[in-house]
């Protein structure tokens, strides 16, 4: 397994060998588009409520979104499957090198893209360069309507205006599970914990786990369904696999 330090995109072989640590498998065929993951993610990660006006103008703040697509022209429309889209936690992320302040950096230990909120100055270059367009910007200090202010997650920072944010794969849950396992002197077991979106998905369309462990559920599902990555031609080495049968 290659680590990111010796990862060189010019060496295609190495990049093909790249295996991340945490990853997801998403089965688009069973996704019903109920948006429970979107709601759960917002609750878990203290995501601001932008209101209808800003949301209508393309300023929704969701770390995960359900994309709907359709085939054909208006009267004869065939809905195709829904596509949950979140940060792909690329092994070779386009967002990281363009930040002038080192606010988005790579975690060597977790193989995740981190967003350091208090280092972000808001140039928004990372969001421009993200081919998946999954980053959310705090355009204002959004007021949370009652009773939302009563359910903040104490493990997650509340972000100020002018700061970029994105899906972290619920890194607070990862740390919690790792701390618990360490105190008990063992490794984190597969399925011991999961992200908020995977936890609430009623159809089990989202599976989260260790992609570097071939025995884990996510690895097995990816293998069984021959999961595909989004935009692999860009060499981003994403850690989320998708399956869409038809």
């Amino acid at each position: 397994m290659a680590t990111v330090t010796d990862l060189n995109i010019s060496e295609v072989k190495l990049s093909e060998e790249y295996v991340g640590k945490w990853g997801m498998f998403i089965n688009q065929d069973v996704c019903t588009g109920c948006q429970a993951c979107v709601a759960a993610c917002s609750m878990e990660n203290n995501i601001a409520f932008v209101g209808p006006e800003d949301a209508g103008y393309g300023r929704t703040m969701n770390w995960i979104r359900i994309e709907r697509f359709w085939d054909g022209e208006y009267p004869e429309i065939k809905m195709t499957s829904r596509q949950p889209m979140m940060c792909q936690q690329c092994g070779h992320a386009p967002c990281e090198p363009v930040c002038p302040a080192f606010a988005t950096v790579h975690s060597q230990a977790q193989q995740l893209n981190l967003q350091v909120y208090n280092r972000c100055v808001g140039t928004r270059y990372c969001a421009n360069n993200c081919p998946y367009q999954v980053r959310s910007f705090n355009w204002r200090d959004y007021k949370r309507p009652e009773p939302l202010p009563n359910q903040f997650n104490p493990d997650v920072t509340v972000r100020q205006r002018g700061v970029m944010e994105k899906c972290t794969f619920c890194i607070q849950r990862i740390h919690q599970a790792e701390d618990k396992a360490r105190s008990e002197g063992r490794e984190v077991a597969d399925g011991e914990f999961t992200t908020a979106c995977a936890q609430v998905c009623p159809a089990d369309a989202i599976t989260f786990g260790r992609v570097d462990n071939p025995e884990s559920l996510v690895s097995q599902l990816t293998k069984q369904y021959e999961g595909l990555k989004h935009l692999p031609e860009l060499g981003t080495l994403s850690n989320v696999s998708y399956f869409k049968g038809g």
Partner: peptide
């Protein structure tokens, strides 16, 4: 905040 400008996703 930048919300009063026209920039969006």
């Amino acid at each position: 905040g930048l919300g009063i400008a026209g920039v969006n996703r």
